[in-house]
Amino acid sequence: MDMRPELTDPLEERRALQDTESKIALAGHPLHAMLVAFPIALSFSTLGADLLYAWTGAAFWAEAAGYAVFGAFSIGVLAGLTGTAELLLVRGIRSRSASWTHFILAVMLLSLLGANWILRIGDPEGAVLPVGLALSLVAAGMTALTGWHGGKLVFDYQIGTKSDGIDRP
Rank of each mutant, 00 (worst) to 15 (best):
F73T: 13
I24Q: 05
G151K: 05
V154C: 03
W61H: 06
L153Q: 15
S22A: 15
S95F: 01
V107A: 12
A115L: 15
T84I: 13
A59K: 07
G71S: 10
E125G: 02
E63S: 11
D123E: 04
I118S: 14
I40F: 01
A127Y: 10
S43F: 04
L145C: 02
A79K: 07
L87F: 05
T46M: 05
R120G: 03
P30W: 01
L31Y: 00
L109C: 13
L133E: 10
G126K: 14
L113E: 13
L42T: 01
L89H: 10
M142V: 12
G150C: 02
T146W: 00
E125I: 07
V131H: 11
L26I: 12
R96P: 05
L145V: 10
L133R: 10
M34H: 04
W117G: 09
G151P: 01
E12I: 06
A68R: 03
A49Y: 12
P10E: 09
L11S: 07
G92M: 09
A65W: 07
G71E: 06
L110M: 14
W148H: 03
L78A: 15
F155K: 14
S22C: 05
A144Y: 11
T46Q: 11
E86H: 02
M108T: 15
L109E: 08
G122E: 01
L42C: 02
G141S: 09
E12R: 08
T84N: 11
E21L: 08
I104K: 07
G76M: 07
W117R: 15
N116K: 07
S97V: 12
L17S: 05
G150H: 00
G132Q: 13
W148V: 05
A72T: 08
W117I: 12
G66E: 06
L109R: 12
V154P: 02
L105A: 15
R94D: 10
